[in-house]
Simulated assay, not measured.
Amino acid sequence: MIEFKLEGEFIPLISLLKATGLVQSGGEAQTVVEDGLVKYNGNVDYRKRLKVRIGDVVDFMGNQIKIV
């Protein structure tokens, strides 16, 4: 599990995927979200501009990111 320390109120989902190094670019992040490859708190979520906050868990390609 990756623990991501949030510096502020929220981080957009696409930015989170880039910041954790799970994707190489914003375009790649948008594509994986649109393709339904990302789970947000256990459910597939297609919102590219989703605001991820402390306590949320994001799953992508076998990697789990917990926001702390």
Rank of each mutant, 00 (worst) to 15 (best):
K48N: 09
K5T: 11
R49N: 11
K48P: 03
D45Q: 04
I65H: 03
G55Q: 07
T20P: 07
D45L: 06
S25R: 01
Q24K: 15
R53F: 10
V57T: 09
R47I: 00
Q30S: 15
K66Y: 03
A19H: 06
F10N: 13
V44Q: 08
E34W: 00
A29K: 00
E28C: 04
L16I: 07
G55H: 08
F60Q: 00
E28F: 03
V44R: 13
R53P: 02
R47Y: 01
I65V: 14
V58I: 15
E28R: 05
D35L: 09
I54E: 14
Y46Q: 01
D59H: 09
N41W: 11
Q64G: 02
V44M: 12
E9Q: 12
R53I: 13
D45T: 09
G8Q: 15
L22V: 01
V33N: 00
K48S: 06
N63K: 11
K18P: 02
K39I: 07
Q64Y: 10
K66P: 07
V32E: 01
N63F: 11
D45H: 07
T20S: 05
V33W: 01
K5L: 13
E28S: 04
G42I: 10
E34Y: 01
G8A: 14
G62I: 08
E3L: 13
L22C: 02
P12T: 06
G62N: 11
S15A: 08
V33E: 05
I54K: 15
V23H: 00
S15D: 14
Q24Y: 00
N43Q: 14
N41I: 13
R53S: 13
L6E: 13
V68Q: 10
A19G: 02
R49M: 07
K48H: 02
L37A: 10
E9H: 12
L22N: 00
L13H: 06
G55A: 03
V33L: 03
I14T: 14
R47Q: 08
I65W: 06
I2G: 08
V58F: 06
F10T: 13
M61L: 12
V57G: 00
G55M: 09
V38M: 06
I11S: 05
L6T: 12
Y46H: 03
R53K: 15
R47H: 05
K39G: 05
F60H: 00
Y40Q: 06
